[in-house]
Design a protein around this nucleic acid. Structure first.
Ligand SMILES: [Mn+2]
Ligand SMILES: [Mn+2]
Ligand SMILES: [Zn+2]
Ligand SMILES: [Zn+2]
Lengths: 123, 123
DNA sequence: TATTTTATGCAACTTAGTCGCAAAGGAGAT
DNA sequence: ATCTCCTTTGCGACTAAGTTGCATAAAATA
């Protein structure tokens, strides 16, 4: 795992530090987008939020991580992969990764967020 | 205009008040989604932000107004019409209303926001 | 008119994220 | 190893969009 994350940093031209490792470790293991609190909880060692957000900003700028706002006014992060959409349910607050096709969109899309009521909550 | 807004309130079962009129007046005239500051600026008479947000929450719940978060961590509002997407440019911060088709989406979609770099900023 | 309910304004509060600054860490030069 | 310079980190103070409590005002109901 350590090597994979080092490789990731290398690929995006970002210096490898322990703080960065901690964050990326959690994101790599994650199966869902996560917010600061959630990531912090999963980290082995504590980290100041200033450090966290500064590094996240770095990752984002490099295109390594994508973020979007959840229904709770918090930012959610995930490692960039194939661009896909997230559906956020206003009732159960679940975030559902989805694979929708938009056809042509002008410009470069970095995140797509749909909000509404999920199928489970509707019935 | 006054009558149209009264009718709108009536349709959504919302009592007509001067504060509500002020907000809806601005939203009806708007050609773009607007945030609190922008709406306030266009209003004839001043209004407290608590009143504003409380009424907006009411409109939202009734389904009369839709909101989404902009790139600046502010909420943007517009009168509900045909559900459509907004593209927000991370560089010029323009909000572009767009008419995309997603095909089937499970659940009830209330807002769709795409973020990225708009065509104008790309070149 | 008197009573009850709802809407508004003000000020204090909450909280995710930011910023300034000093200390810690790391890479290179001597 | 030691010195120097630059980057990263942690701490604490700060910012600002939106929220909440409470007193007053307006509107509905009797
Ligand atoms: Mn996802
Ligand atoms: Mn629009
Ligand atoms: Zn749901
Ligand atoms: Zn742009």
């Amino acid at each position: 795992m350590n090597e994979q994350i080092k490789a990731l940093c290398c690929e995006y031209d970002i210096k490898f530090t322990t703080a960065r490792f901690s964050i990326l470790m959690v994101l790599k293991k994650a199966s869902q987008p996560m917010n600061y609190e959630q990531i912090k909880e999963k980290m082995d060692s504590a980290m100041d939020k200033a450090t966290f957000y500064r590094n996240i900003a770095l990752f984002e700028e490099a295109g390594m991580v994508h973020k979007f706002e959840g229904d709770d006014r918090k930012w959610y992060f995930e490692l960039s992969g194939k661009t896909h959409a997230h559906f956020i349910c206003e009732q159960c607050h679940r975030i559902i990764c989805m694979d929708v096709d938009f056809g042509e969109v002008e410009g470069e899309v970095k995140s797509i967020v749909l909000k509404g009521i999920c199928k489970a909550c509707q019935s």
